[in-house]
Every structure is written in structure tokens, then in C-alpha cells.
Amino acid sequence: MIFLNICFIARNNEGDQVPSVRATKRFIKFAAIPLSIFVFVLVIPFINGFYYTFTDWDGFESTKLVGFSNYTKSFQDPTFWSTLRFTALFVVVSLVAVNAVAFGLALIVTSKLRSRNVLRTFFFVPNLIGGVILGVIWQFIFNSALVSLANKYDWTLFKESWLQDTNKAFWALIIVTVWQSSGYMMIVYITGLVSIENDVLEASQIDGASPLRTLLSIKVPLMAQAFTIALFLTLRGGFMAYDVNVALTGGGPFRTTELISLHIFQDAFLNGNFGTGQSKAVVMFLMVALAALVQVTISKRYEVQR
């Protein structure tokens, strides 16, 4: 964000008479505080953490450099690989599901429904509940509420808690993630939908386009920016999901539903392997950065200038 601000300020000053001095002054005025915070809480710890991956850091101190051995150990860890596979699957499925639901909700609440304002609030509320509380609530639903209802009314699907089966626990994670974040993404899509000028829509109406044709050929291309943002946010959210994972499944059953963040946390703070934990975190950073870059580059191509 800060880099964007800097570019923005620099661009604004292009036409000035004494650009360099004024630009620098302005830059200092605007960016000094956020930039220093950015450096101190992000850049320095990041470099520090990166350095630690090459040492024998035990959480307290490091005594010597160990080269790439933390990375080799990380990649030799079979649970790291299975966690990566599980995380990849989770990211793909949650990305599709959250965005599909969010876009659908956005279409509903921008239609001519009378209850649309109530619905907007209604769909957004789950996002205001913290991930941990949400996980606990849904754990109760899956573990107790659904199971006792299933036993009473004989629903075979819910007779055993979903959290006790790896595949069902995966879908439980997806359901809760969709429930939590689709409201937020809905807001992003609403912004995209309402920013489309009415004259374009009216023109398409006069041309006799069906609602589906309008949606696919007019609305979607014109709000491609909203897709870029929403896809980026859900992609990042999928990779970094932690609180719902901890509170809902806790990685169970049998540690088969641990997402990458939880796995790294456990390795460092539970097993006390700070070196490998930190190097896995670096690997995760590279993956998220790469995936996000690819996604943004592709989505940008579909954006249209108005």
C-alpha cells in the first residue's frame, strides 16, 4: 500500500516547477510515519527471520550458520508435503466457493428486491464475528447440534460428527470459510456492480439483451477490477487461514486437516523446531507471493479502461 502511495505522490508532482525538492518534502510529510512503521514491523523482522533460517536459532539465540540445512529438513518432512497438498486443495476450493457465493449474493442484493438492504446486513454480519469464536460456534454445530438432530430425525449424513472424518472436516472448513468471508467479498462485488454506468445498461436493454447476456457481456467485463480484488483477497485468505482452522478442527482428525499456517506454528512453538518452522514460513511466503502475482497479472488483463 505504501509503495502505491509513493507512486501516487510522485505522479501528482510531475507537472510541478521544482519537483524534486517539493516532492521530497511532501513525501516526508506524508509517508515518514507509515514508512518507518512499515520498515520496523515488517521489513526488519522479515529480513531478520530470513537470516534465522540459515542459523541454528532455537527461539532464544543463534550460535552458528548452518547453510541450507533447515530448508532440506523442511522438505524432507513428509507432513510438510501433505500439509501443502491439503492447503492447495483448500485454497482452490475456497477461492471458487467464496467468490461464487459472494457474487451470487451481490446480484441478489443489487436486484430490485424490497428486502435488499436488510439482506446486505444479514449477509455481512458473519464477517464481524472473530474467526476463533466462529470456529467454536461451528464446532458445536457439527459436533453436537447436528449429531443430536440427526439421531432424533434419522439423518444418516450427520449421525457422526463431520469433524471426525478427514473429508467431511475439509468440507466443514470450506462451509465455515464461505459463511465467514462471502459477506465481505459481496461488498466488493456490490461496489463493482453499482459502479457500472446506467447508460451502458440502458443501451444493452434497448438492443434487446437478455439479463444473462447483460450479465456476462456487460456487467462482468465492466467490473473485472472487483474480481481482481476479491480473488486476490480470497487467495491470500486461503493460504493464510489459521484461526478458523485452529478453532474448528484444530487440525483433527488425526492431524489431517492442518493448513500450512497451523503446521508452521506447531513445528516452531510446539515441537520447538524454530529453524525449520521459520524456513517453512519463508517457503510459504514465496508461494503466496508467486500465486498472488500470477493471479493479479492474469486478472489485470481482463480489466477494461473506462
Binding site: Q139, F140, S144, V147, S161, L163, Q164, T249, G250, G252
Partner: peptide, 8 residues
């Protein structure tokens, strides 16, 4: 008892 693998 009914099997429950979570912290509850």
C-alpha cells in the same frame, strides 16, 4: 460414550 475427537 460417543466418540468425540475434539477438545469438547
Amino acid at each position: 460414550s460417543t466418540t468425540n475427537l475434539t477438545d469438547t
